[in-house]
């Protein structure tokens, strides 16, 4: 028993020494931890601004799609010109949704980097654009689903009181939609954060790429990769906790 424990102590001690050395090599030497710090910074910048762009695009696309669907007949009967404009806008939105949701985000990112924005050197901006445009399609469908899930009677009650379609949306429908879609929206942001990990494909130094650079320098895969995974996990866990809090708060105010 005593001998076993002595052996264990020696082994554990050796393991710990080894761990310390690799940690030193991967993160402390040459200030290599800065690759992770800067990488995380870029990952967060890209996520936040792509999310904002995605939400803006999503609102626009969802508005066009639902406005057209809900008012097709009235526009055709009462305002031909508006009907034609909206039909074109609706078709553009549908094509956007199909293309974005039908192709991999990495390919979209590469198209943005190597073709559309080939002359730009601001790689973070390119990533924000690519991920924002991608996220916009998913956000649009979240909003659209939220609007379409509101009982048509709510629209009719608003219209019969004399509210225009847009004021019905503003006063009656949207407040209900926001409550319903907020959790899904935050989940989309979490998904977006993880998706940005492919940014390294176009030599953007995000968190994943930061870990990869360290691996290239130190030839040790385990420690940098586990550390990168750990950092993503912590951010996601914090965000998920936030979603849960929001969900609970919405439940409380629900009647």
């Amino acid at each position: 028993m005593g001998a076993w424990f002595e052996g264990f102590k020696a082994n554990a001690g050796a393991w710990f020494e080894d761990f310390k050395a690799t940690f030193q090599l991967n993160f402390i030497d040459d200030d290599r931890y800065m690759y992770l710090v800067n990488g995380l910074k870029n990952t967060l910048i890209i996520t936040v601004f792509a999310a904002l762009l995605g939400i803006a695009l999503g609102i626009i696309v969802a508005s066009v799609r639902t406005t057209f669907d809900k008012n097709e007949e009235s526009m055709r009967m009462r305002n031909k010109g508006l009907y034609i404009v909206m039909k074109i806008a609706n078709t553009v939105c549908k094509v956007y949704l199909t293309v974005i949701r039908g192709t991999p985000v990495v390919v979209q990112l590469m198209i943005m980097y190597f073709i559309i924005m080939a002359s730009s050197t601001n790689s973070v901006l390119i990533a924000v654009l690519a991920f924002g445009i991608n996220s916009g399609a998913y956000v649009a469908e979240i909003f659209r689903g939220g609007i379409m899930s509101i009982d048509n009677g709510q629209f009719e009650a608003g219209r019969s009181l004399g509210f225009s379609y847009f004021r019905t949306m503003y006063h009656i429908v949207v407040p209900q939609v926001i409550k319903n879609v907020l959790p899904a929206l935050l989940n989309e942001c979490i998904a977006l954060l993880k998706e940005t990990s492919v940014a390294g494909y176009v030599s953007i130094q995000d968190l994943t790429k930061g870990g990869d650079i360290i691996r290239g320098r130190t030839y040790s895969a385990f420690m940098p990769l586990i550390m990168v995974a750990l950092i993503y996990l912590i951010v996601v866990v914090v965000l998920t906790w936030l979603v849960g809090k929001v969900e609970r708060r919405l439940k409380v105010s629900e009647r």
Binding site: M77, R78, N79, D151, G153, Q154, E156, A157, R159, S160, L161, G162, F163, S164, I172, P175, Q176, K179, R255
Partner: peptide, 25 residues
Amino acid sequence: NPKVNLNRHRQKMGMVFQHFNLFPH
């Protein structure tokens, strides 16, 4: 007639639905 202000006219006509359609929020 498409030129008539429909919202203005709807204000003058109240409607009560089978399923109430009160605003739940």
